[in-house]
Simulated scan of single mutants.
Amino acid sequence: MTITHDRPTQVFELINPELRAELIADVRKSWPGLSDELGARGVHQLVAFLATSSGADVPMAPSLRVDLFWHAFVLHTKPYADFCAALGGFIHHVPDRDSRAPAEGRAALARTRNTISAAGYDLDPEFWPPESATDCSADCSQCHAGCSDSPVNK
Rank of each mutant, 00 (worst) to 15 (best):
A103V: 10
G88P: 11
A81F: 02
V94A: 14
L14Y: 10
V43S: 01
C136K: 06
A118R: 15
L46I: 07
A101Q: 08
P125E: 13
R113Y: 03
S141Q: 00
A101W: 00
L19R: 00
A61W: 00
A108F: 03
F12K: 07
T112C: 04
G33T: 13
F73K: 12
S54L: 06
R28W: 03
H76Q: 13
L87A: 04
V47M: 11
L19F: 01
C136L: 13
F73G: 03
R97M: 05
M1P: 05
T52L: 11
L68W: 05
P32E: 09
R113T: 08
L87G: 04
L123S: 07
F49N: 05
N114H: 08
R111F: 05
A51D: 09
K78I: 13
D149I: 07
E22V: 02
R28H: 09
L23N: 08
C147P: 08
S150T: 02
F73W: 02
Q142F: 05
D98L: 10
A21E: 14
A138D: 00
D135F: 07
A133E: 10
P59V: 15
L64M: 07
D26Q: 14
H44V: 00
M60T: 11
T134Q: 12
E131R: 03
H5Y: 02
G120H: 12
A72C: 10
I116G: 02
R7T: 10
F127C: 07
E126G: 06
G120Q: 05
G105L: 14
D149M: 01
P129E: 08
E104Y: 00
D122P: 01
A107C: 07
S137I: 02
R20V: 04
S35W: 02
G88N: 14
S137W: 13
F12H: 11
T112Y: 06
S99Y: 00
A56M: 10
F73M: 08
Q45P: 09
A40V: 09
P62T: 08
A86P: 00
H92M: 08
P130T: 07
E131H: 00
I116C: 10
A51L: 12
Q10L: 11
C147E: 09
R7D: 13
V94L: 05
D82L: 15
G42K: 02
P59H: 15
A118N: 11
F127E: 00
D98H: 08
C147L: 09
S99C: 11
S137A: 13
L87H: 03
G88K: 09
A85W: 04
G33L: 12
R28T: 05
A81P: 02
C143G: 08
S35P: 04
L38D: 12
H71R: 15
H44P: 01
E18Q: 04
P62H: 09
Q10S: 07
V58L: 15
S132I: 01
S150M: 03
T134W: 01
T9C: 00
S30L: 14
G146M: 05
G105N: 14
T77I: 14
H71D: 15
P32S: 13
P102A: 03
W31G: 00
G42N: 05
P95W: 06
